[in-house]
Design a protein around this nucleic acid. Structure first.
Lengths: 337, 337
DNA sequence: AGTCATTAAGTTACCGGTATCAAAAATCGG
DNA sequence: CCGATTTTTGATACCGGTAACTTAATGACT
């Protein structure tokens, strides 16, 4: 049972009001719409606030006004710093508006995500940004029923809850695979994490590309690996053991690709001559290893910006303007392919 | 002006009460202390909740009960995934208790931090975990006045706001420097970020260690570098240009160390023969590069756990039990030294 | 069966703000 | 200088819950 007894109590608005010799309402106005209060009183209120160390109670404010100044963000994990840019994009938009961003972590599991979403809805946040695009029916029902503006981020889902700002995992994956094919690689293997809806889309894109270049979309060419650098090592081990004639490895994640590269070095495999390596997500690291790794640059920062902008727009005017924004991606060709 | 008109409205507790044919109070009890309501009514309430899609309003709950079920966490940045473990530690403790973690990002700047803290206090969070240990006087005053339980994390400050769970940056830095000296390195250079209170402590520890081994604590041996891999390159460039007889580089950050290692490779400098490299913060990456990098393992996960535990303990009983926990550190000797 | 203790449900007031409307003060035109 | 209009301030109710207390129901025991 959560409980904070005698919460941050102390100074209330009525204390400020008494201290300044005005009514509570005047204090409220001085704080929220300063222009509607005469300069003299306004100053008296500010002085009293300062003197008493009053901090506005957003709880009460939100409750009575049915407004919130909090935007919630649900991310699958903080281990991966790829979300840092998205967070920055959101923050940059929110900061000048007086809204605050609150972040919660939730693994890629609809049940767990539902808990987190429920907590945010319980806080009556003004809007929600979800990285995941797969949600429990209860969560969707809850969000719809509460009319909470929502932006989904991780992919372009077929059936969005509300708004979407993203790139297409499938299209990006397909494009990279075609890029590899165009470079002349013909025995491409795809390595990805299991149990991640985004990873599955990437898989599909890979298979589609194979088909498009006239190859058999063979599931044998897909390796499921663990998270982290070891995942890359697993991919290389698998290739060495079962698919020795592979000439290119496409990793559905930057850390995987770097792990694979390190393992190639240990084995003395030349990259890209023995094996080319391409990665998903153009993080700093892939530009600093040697050889530098060909990668997909995703508009992480821009996704954050647009998500926040759409949310605010939607909050401030019921107009359900844009609903779906595809920000695309970009292939960055480097030394590893 | 932040504003969410017609917030997540819809179903209120009174609607549930009517639907179930009981009083609001019974609904409240059924939800919060199920045992105090007879099974039959309880079931009726649950059914009504389900049917109507009711989501508890934490705003109202917190307001009227003066309790919050939210713990706030302020981190300087999400770019660095070192905080992921701390977040996990906190979450693991909080999850079974019904508390929720809300995270906010704030650069290492007391003024900006104050804004964030103020927002959390305005939400009347039940407790706060701060990574920074340097705060604006106004922020400290606010936190003290509001009686918000606070845990500081990033270092062991001389004058804590409330509670502290951390390791000592200075002691860790000193220990690593002494370790390098013991290994026989005598021309050690320290590379760190500027404008970061933790980095400064690490610097002090470095200088103290030099003095202890009878060397002149020379500021020349300290290089200030940029964030990211490039910082490591800057350090190496500086050494090459100005301190060519350096035999060991101690980087106050793992990314710096890896950046330095990469640059050594480009230059054909053997590590550790030409230059030894040691890092602060034992992240995954330093175990996967070659050679593996000697590092300081910090109890990031444990810091999260203990912080959350202390906070809960403090929240549940005014007893101001433990105030300061030093969780120490560990030197992991690897191939780079 | 009657009295008292215990448990379950309901009533009322209030948490700390804001919306709304009414009252008071200031502004203004003739 | 007065009445009408506009601006500023105040009074009151209410946002959606819970605490504290009261009343009704259940049970225990002499």
């Amino acid at each position: 049972m959560p409980a904070t007894k005698g919460l941050a109590s102390s100074v209330r608005m009525r204390d400020v009001a008494e201290h300044a010799g005005v009514s509570r309402m005047t204090v409220s106005r001085a704080l929220n719409k300063p222009d509607s209060v005469k300069p003299e009183l306004r100053q008296r209120v500010f002085d009293a606030v300062e003197e008493l160390g009053y901090v506005h109670n957003h709880l009460a404010r939100s409750l009575s006004s049915s407004r919130s100044n909090v935007i919630g963000l649900v991310l699958p994990s903080l281990e991966n710093s790829i979300f840092a840019q998205t967070v920055k994009g959101i923050s940059d938009v929110l900061r000048p508006t007086g809204y605050h961003l609150m972040l919660a972590e939730s693994p890629d599991d609809p049940e767990e995500e539902e808990q987190v979403i429920s907590a945010f809805v319980a806080q009556r946040v003004g809007g929600l940004i979800l990285h995941g695009t797969e949600h429990s029916p209860a969560a969707v029902r809850m969000l719809r029923a509460s009319h909470t503006p929502v932006v989904e981020n991780g992919d372009l889902p077929k059936d969005p809850i509300d708004m979407v700002v993203s790139y297409s995992n499938r299209a990006a994956s397909k494009a990279m695979t075609l890029h590899l094919a165009r470079l002349g690689y013909s025995k491409i293997v795809f390595a990805g994490l299991a149990s991640n809806p985004r990873a599955e889309e990437r898989q599909k894109g890979f298979l589609e590309a194979l088909q498009e270049v006239g190859q058999n979309p063979d599931m044998q060419k897909i390796v499921r690996v663990s998270r982290g650098f070891v995942g890359g090592e697993e991919a290389i081990s698998h290739i060495a053991a079962h698919l020795p004639d592979t000439d290119a490895l496409f990793c559905a994640g930057d850390v995987l690709a770097v792990g694979a590269l390190f393992d190639c070095k240990r084995r003395g495999w030349a990259v890209p001559d023995r094996l080319a390596i391409a990665s998903f997500d153009d993080v700093d690291l892939v530009r600093h290893v040697s050889p530098t790794i060909t990668s997909l640059r995703l508009p992480r920062y821009e996704i954050g910006r647009r998500s926040a902008e759409l949310l605010l727009q939607r909050i401030n005017s019921k107009k359900s303007s844009v609903k779906k924004v595809d920000l695309g991606f970009e292939i960055v060709q480097r030394a590893s392919t």
